[in-house]
Amino acid sequence: MQGPPVIFSPRRRLNARARMAAMRRTGNAVSTVARELAADAVDRLGFLNRTFDRALVIGDVTGTFADHLLAAGGEVVRADPSPELGLAVAEDAPIEGGPFNLIVSLGLLDTVNDLPGALALMRRALAPDALMIASFLAAGCLPTLRKAMLSADADRPAPRVHPQVDVRAAGQLMTRVGYASPVVDGWSFDVKFDDLDQLVGDLRAQAMGNVLADPGPPLGKAALSRARNAFADEADEDGLVRERFEVVTLSGWSPAPRF
């Protein structure tokens, strides 16, 4: 049986997260996206009249969401694809240590090669009538960076920015892999940057750089100059460039037992 296409490099992905972990240890942490995803997940739990006494939290690099659960008295297992950031969990392998009555994945599923498989593995690690929440970057993300990269490559565009899942396709996946009462919604937030180099540096510091299996050739000096100029052309009256981060959040329940 043929597996899913290899779009992302697992090795490059792990290296990116290891680099992020190293930067966090030296105090050079940028957590803009991680903070937004964690805060949104906390808000979502606030609407539920439910307690979760055993949770698996994957990719919460700020610890915000895990700390919220701990404050409520629950047991929390912190995990990440990189063992430097928590219990090592691979999205293409069964999750051990379950069952859990809550699994939350933050900022990870946009760079897995088998998204349906990753969602199915999380569902199998849930106890009956348990909740899964996954938030990750979605289609339409980073439009200004995409435009700058197209300007850089001119007539021969190279693969530099990740392909991403749109909200409608994500919703179909939830039903396909067996979640009950699935909910899928898209949301966004904006961040302003001084220039292209600051944006790229922040993305790399958050393990959000290029982890494609075919990352394309490096930008030459002339191409990099075109990209910087195209990005700067989008500046507002304050000289800052607003970039958009689109997010899709999936939530669903493992089927409850039938009596």
Rank of each mutant, 00 (worst) to 15 (best):
M1H: 09
Q2C: 05
Q2P: 14
P5T: 07
V6F: 03
F8I: 10
S9V: 07
P10R: 00
R12G: 11
N15D: 15
A16P: 09
M20P: 12
A22F: 10
R24H: 12
R25F: 07
R25S: 13
R25M: 11
R25T: 14
N28Q: 15
V30L: 11
V30A: 11
V33L: 11
A34K: 09
A34Q: 10
E36M: 14
L37K: 07
L37P: 06
A38D: 06
A41K: 02
L45P: 02
L48S: 02
N49V: 10
D53Q: 12
A55I: 05
A55T: 00
L56D: 02
L56A: 03
V57F: 02
G59H: 01
D60T: 03
V61N: 03
A66I: 01
D67S: 13
H68Y: 13
L69R: 01
L69E: 01
L70A: 15
A72Q: 12
V76L: 09
V76Q: 05
R78N: 09
D80T: 11
S82C: 14
P83E: 07
L85F: 05
G86F: 03
E91V: 08
D92F: 09
I95N: 00
G97C: 07
G98I: 03
G98L: 11
P99W: 08
P99Y: 07
F100G: 01
N101K: 04
L102T: 04
L102E: 04
V104W: 03
G107A: 06
T111N: 10
V112S: 04
N113E: 11
N113A: 13
L115V: 14
L121F: 08
R123G: 04
R124H: 10
A127M: 08
A127L: 01
L131C: 00
M132K: 04
I133Q: 04
I133K: 01
L137M: 12
L137E: 13
A138W: 02
G140V: 03
G140Y: 02
T144P: 06
R146L: 10
K147P: 00
S151E: 14
D153H: 12
A154Q: 08
D155P: 01
D155E: 14
P157Y: 07
P157I: 04
P159C: 08
V161T: 14
H162D: 08
Q164P: 06
D166N: 13
V167N: 11
R168E: 14
A170Y: 02
Q172I: 10
R176T: 11
Y179A: 00
P182E: 07
V184F: 04
G186V: 06
G186P: 03
D190A: 12
D190F: 14
F193H: 15
D197I: 05
D197A: 12
L199V: 00
D202I: 11
D202P: 01
L203V: 06
Q206P: 00
A207D: 09
M208W: 00
V211M: 01
V211Y: 05
A213L: 14
D214S: 14
D214W: 09
D214K: 15
P215Q: 05
P215N: 11
G216C: 11
P217T: 13
L219N: 08
A223E: 15
R226N: 04
A232R: 10
D233L: 13
A235I: 05
L240R: 15
R244Y: 07
F245R: 08
V247R: 09
T249P: 02
S251M: 15
S251E: 14
P257K: 12
R258T: 13
R258G: 12
F259G: 15
